[in-house]
Design a protein around this nucleic acid. Structure first.
Lengths: 208, 208
DNA sequence: CTCGTCTGAATGAACGGTCACTCAGTCAAG
DNA sequence: CTTGACTGAGTGACCGTTCATTCAGACGAG
């Protein structure tokens, strides 16, 4: 059937599977992005992934679990990357700039994934609550802690509520991403990070 | 015609029609907010509205049209209010402050409506595109024009791209609203408008 | 006033299409 | 042979939508 089989022979026998799980996740991201989660049929995901309907259920308990998996992997990677890339930096302003850039670069690099994150995951309070609890909360914490670091260093106005300020930055970036997805015009998403940071840092800076 | 007549309080068992259309819209907002649009059954909406399943179809062509109606009414009112309230103001900074306050006051006053706007309407690219085209675009334009007014007056940095800046402000407000919905803690949404504006105006201001 | 007639808003049971999920069977490798 | 990954037709539940039927009130005639 698929030549992928032979390609994979190179690996160990049991792990020989050309990772169908991976194929299904990729297919689902594409299908969900195109039609929306609720309008997508599991059969479509299976077809795009090149497997039978039933195979999907060998890797995922339910349609919903596919969406959850896409989300968990995406947010996990994003947070890990942000932590790793900021660890080496000293200036909190630079840290925030790096976080913002990573945020928009990541979404800008994979439109399907961006659609799922910006649109599909928001489509029900149920998912939103998980989203909020699991990933967003940690991401916002990362931003908040960086802000507080800057406040202690006297770089940012001390009287500002770091929690609210973190949401402002996140919200601004989030809106850039959502608008980019909906825009028919093709433009680069990542550079907007600098414009956002420019205004944002100016707004929270303590030096006049 | 007047549907709410004085006979409303009469002892008539069949009280005069208190606008079923209105009742259905209100019920749908509640039901959609609770279960999500795709998980809601038309039968649930009918039950909450106190009408039979079929009656819903005397007032709306389809389930989707109910959602569209909620959206159109909401966004129409919001834009009208923003225009009306800013018309009398001179200072672009005050205009923006008023827009932000109205934005959050409106959503903060009706949690169900807020959930539908912040969550349910985002749940499919299809709705998002309509949302974007119909209402959001006009709202962003209102903000952008106010920003440009401020730039011409020398209040805001002239080198900033007003379109991007408008999205930043909108995104920040939007995130406040979404977070408020998802938060179990009860706090007032509207006052956050001032914190957002504080940082925002500081960030775009041309005077040091 | 009291019929008799008519109207159309409202009803809700039933329909029909859709689709997530299942499972009995196939097949290839060892 | 056994094993287990994979298949895909089948199934049953679900739910948006329809439509034959009901009945409260309007209205004209007497």
């Amino acid at each position: 059937m698929r030549s992928a089989r032979s390609v994979n022979q190179s690996s160990s026998p049991r792990a020989s599977v050309p990772d169908k799980r991976e194929a299904i996740l990729r297919a689902a991201t594409k299908v969900f992005a195109e039609s929306g989660y609720f309008n997508s049929k599991v059969a479509d995901v299976a077809r795009v992934a090149g497997v039978a309907d039933g195979t999907v259920y060998l890797y995922f308990k339910s349609k919903e679990e596919i969406l959850r998996s896409i989300f968990e992997r995406g947010v996990g990677e994003a947070i890990a990357a942000a932590r790793a890339e900021t660890a080496a930096l000293d200036d909190p302003r630079e840290k925030l700039r790096r976080i913002a850039r990573l945020h928009l670069e990541r979404l800008g690099a994979d439109r399907d994934l961006a659609v799922v994150f910006q649109v599909e995951l928001r489509g029900s309070t149920k998912f939103m609550e998980e989203f909020s609890a699991a990933g967003l909360a940690e991401y916002l914490r990362l931003i908040r802690e960086t802000l507080e670091e800057g406040q202690r260093a006297g770089l940012f106005r001390a009287e500002l509520n770091a929690k609210v300020v973190a949401k402002i930055l996140f919200g601004a970036l989030d809106e850039m991403a959502t608008n980019w997805i909906l825009s028919p015009r093709a433009y680069k998403l990542a550079p907007l990070a600098d414009q956002v940071l420019d205004i944002f840092l100016n707004g929270v800076s303590s030096n006049k």
